[in-house]
Amino acid sequence: MGVILVVDDDSEIRDVIHVYLRNEGYSVIEAKDGAEALDVLSQRELDLVILDVMMPRMDGIKACMHIRERYDVPIIMLSAKEGDIDKIMGLSTGADDYVTKPFNPMELIARVKAQLRRQKILAGKDVPHTQITIRELVIDIAKHFVSIRGQEVMLTPLEFLILNLLAANPGQVFSADTIYESVWKERVGYSDNTVMVHIRNLREKLELNPKKPEYIKTVWGVGYKMDK
Rank of each mutant, 00 (worst) to 15 (best):
S147C: 07
A31V: 13
R187I: 07
D8Y: 03
D96G: 08
Y98R: 04
N164L: 15
L208V: 15
H129Q: 15
M54V: 05
W184K: 08
D97M: 03
Y190W: 10
D15I: 04
E136S: 15
I179Q: 09
R44N: 05
N193S: 14
L51C: 10
Y224S: 06
A31R: 07
A31G: 12
M77Q: 05
K205G: 14
H66A: 09
N23Q: 14
I75A: 01
L161P: 00
V28Y: 03
D52N: 08
E136W: 08
A114E: 10
V183G: 05
Q119Y: 00
K101S: 11
M58K: 14
T178W: 06
D227W: 08
L51H: 03
W220M: 08
R57M: 10
L202A: 01
A167H: 01
N201F: 00
Q115N: 11
N164F: 06
A31S: 15
A37Y: 05
R117V: 02
L208F: 08
Q43M: 11
R187D: 07
P74N: 09
Q131I: 13
K211W: 03
R187P: 03
R200N: 12
V219C: 01
G94S: 09
P213I: 12
K125I: 14
F160V: 05
E45N: 11
V73D: 00
G90Q: 02
V173L: 01
N23K: 12
L208Y: 06
V153W: 01
P105L: 06
R68D: 13
V16N: 12
R187E: 15
D15Y: 04
F145W: 13
G221N: 06
I216S: 01
D86K: 00
K217T: 09
V3G: 01
P213W: 04
N209P: 05
V53P: 00
H198V: 07
E214L: 06
E12A: 12
G34H: 07
E159C: 00
A63Q: 00
A142M: 14
D8M: 07
E12S: 14
I162T: 12
R149I: 03
L208K: 14
E30P: 01
N193A: 09
V3W: 03
D86Q: 12
L202F: 05
M55F: 09
A114G: 13
R44E: 12
H144D: 05
D39I: 06
E82D: 06
V183R: 02
S27M: 11
E136Q: 08
K225N: 04
P105Y: 11
D59M: 07
L91T: 04
E24I: 14
H144I: 04
P128A: 08
D72K: 14
M55E: 09
L166Y: 08
R200V: 03
L137T: 06
D192V: 05
K62F: 08
Y180Q: 04
K81W: 00
Q119L: 09
N169C: 14
K32Y: 08
D140G: 03
M55V: 07
A63S: 07
I61C: 02
G150H: 12
T133Q: 13
G2Y: 08
E207Q: 15
D126T: 11
